[in-house]
Design a binder for these strands. Sequence first.
DNA 1: TTTTGTTGATTGATCCGTCAATAAACAATA
DNA 2: TATTGTTTATTGACGGATCAATCAACAAAA
Lengths: 192, 192
Amino acid sequence: MEPLRRKALIDATISAIGERGSLDVTMSEIAGRAGVSSALAHHYFGAKDELLQATMRHLLSELGADSRVSLREATNPRERVLAVIAANFSDKQFQAGTIAAWLAFYVEAQKSPAMRRLLRVYARRLHSNLMSGLCALMPRSEADRVAEGIAALIDGFYIRRALKDGTPNAASAIAVIEDYLETKLHQQKADK
Amino acid sequence: MEPLRRKALIDATISAIGERGSLDVTMSEIAGRAGVSSALAHHYFGAKDELLQATMRHLLSELGADSRVSLREATNPRERVLAVIAANFSDKQFQAGTIAAWLAFYVEAQKSPAMRRLLRVYARRLHSNLMSGLCALMPRSEADRVAEGIAALIDGFYIRRALKDGTPNAASAIAVIEDYLETKLHQQKADK
DNA sequence: TTTTGTTGATTGATCCGTCAATAAACAATA
DNA sequence: TATTGTTTATTGACGGATCAATCAACAAAA
């Protein structure tokens, strides 16, 4: 029962955050969505921030898994980079609820060391995933810079989704980022 | 007296948000920082979200003013773009408190239409400021895309500051963004 | 019967917003 | 100038609402 409930509560947390748009969701709200009492949520998670952290870890591991799958299909360095970008803007990831949760967690990270730690894991992983492709395409120092740029672009488009009404368009975000990459690759070839 | 108090309360709001890292600051906390009672804060602003909105507007107008000053010193299109970037990462803007406030407002925008409206003003202004330089350097459609990229990069580096401990380094952020711009300009010249 | 699952009720804390009351500044008037 | 009236500034205290967390109690497996 326990794993079931935990999963349901975490899912409920994401959808609640997604709907409300911030971490300002009550335990009762979350528990209600999961079809249980708030007391049960406390029973399984102890305190609210532990539930939030578990939710964050869940998001993190889902993105990690998606990235790995996406990377496995890549057959060359360039495709590896594209795969990482694609994973971040897949339908599963680039969704209102998930995006809202990421943003809220970024804010939370400013006061919660635990959250900050988790976000750093995300950042490091993203960087190294990007580098795994970029390193073969340009000198290390240049690759580092481009990876930082792409990472900032990804987070930037995530945050900017907060401005748009209606459906977020992952397509145009991908287009801009890929254009950045292609331009960079082109430049590398020219320099050689 | 009124203008004095309003200013003090808005400044107190920014510093409180900056220190706590989120909008989860109480009226008492803010009022205390401004050296007045919480009742007075209510007297001048009515409700908490009005104070928060006033704070957001203040941030917005400060950034707008800084951008205008920075732009005035530019003597050619390329410098105009650089000026906009520089304004966003000036010591005055790229500061822990201010950054925390921007992020928190982004999250708030997901549930508050008023905040969303203000952030859209910011986004539009940034875009048009960037376009004022880019349009002279490349075709409009390309300029649009580059402007979107730079805007996302700026917001991306802002949000990523939440991960770093210690002082935020505006310098490396500027370096990446300017590198992006230069690469793009180079590409334009080559295409011609 | 021991362990696991589950809840309703409750507690204690926090916090927004209001209000009545006081003080200070200001205006009017005799 | 002295006095009276009026608006502005300011606060302490409080009502009312919300919410996290606890707990005692009950049901259901094992």
